[in-house]
Write a protein that binds this DNA or RNA. Structure first.
Lengths: 144, 144
DNA sequence: TTCTTAAAGGAGAATTATTATCTTTGCCTA
DNA sequence: TAGGCAAAGATAATAATTCTCCTTTAAGAA
């Protein structure tokens, strides 16, 4: 898991530093789309001296290099996601909980639809669904 | 247009003030999902003394009362939209431009899909598509 | 292994969108 | 005209993020 991450850093001529690895691992472990603050809290357990500025810089760097993604909700704090292939989100605005949702059949349906119907004045690169509603059960222990 | 807005304010027992009307009109005119700052700049032409705090308070108030919507992009400034019925967004991350997209057939297709297939552990309330890509032409004069 | 150096990390100040606090205004009703 | 109240205005406060400046480190070359 982190080996792939290390390789991807090297491919991009980015240095493999303990901070970058720790931040990437944190996002994977904290799998409910953590905020920068969540990540800092988590990392400081094993890595007490990491700087807030470093975390933000690493998050920006990884985002720019397509190793993680930014996730937005209705609230104004940025959150991060280590899942890089295209996927959708289930979102509950009451609790600000986000879960990933993957559905190949749905993707095919939508892709087919837009293969026939073009949008005037726009070239589509990616389509993501924000599915809002309510979760029926509680979060698991790793989530925030 | 603003008459409907005035009526909706009254229905909710909210006072119809010049500031509220001006802010609502600004969001309608500036139809590229303006930020609070865009709104303030626009309003100050005719209404030079309006306070920043008032604008934020009115935006919150209108959002809570379902008269406008908050919109987020990958950047971290909140933006606002006067279109209240459910619709999708075309988004270009290079320029941060957003356009509304409505498509009844697409909505039917997706609604039907989820009528058959339920998502485990989740009750769907609303589905919105974020369609990312690039616009082929320039914005019109009212946009930012 | 040591050297070199550009890249990355650390600390804390600065920035900026937004929110909170407190005062004033304007309108309705008595 | 006075009292009550919602909303506006001014400004301070907050908090997430970015910047500045300096130090340290990873990784390739010698």
């Amino acid at each position: 898991m982190t080996d792939i991450f290390r390789t991807r850093l090297q491919e991009k001529q980015l240095k493999v530093t303990p901070q970058r690895v720790a931040i990437y691992e944190a996002i994977c472990k904290l799998n409910n789309h953590p905020t920068a603050e969540n990540i800092i809290d988590y990392i400081r357990k094993n890595h007490p001296n990491i700087s807030v500025a470093t975390v933000y810089k690493v998050l920006d760097c990884l985002t720019e290099n397509n190793l993680i993604k930014k996730v937005k909700t209705e609230r104004d704090i940025m959150r991060y996601d280590a899942m890089m292939h295209s996927h959708h989100h289930l979102y509950c605005s009451d609790t600000d909980r986000i879960e990933d949702y993957e559905d190949e059949n749905l993707d095919k349906l939508i892709t087919n639809y837009f293969r026939k119907k073009k949008i005037k004045n726009f070239n589509i690169k990616e389509i993501k669904l924000q599915i809002s509603g309510k979760f029926k059960s509680k979060k698991n222990k790793f989530e925030i």
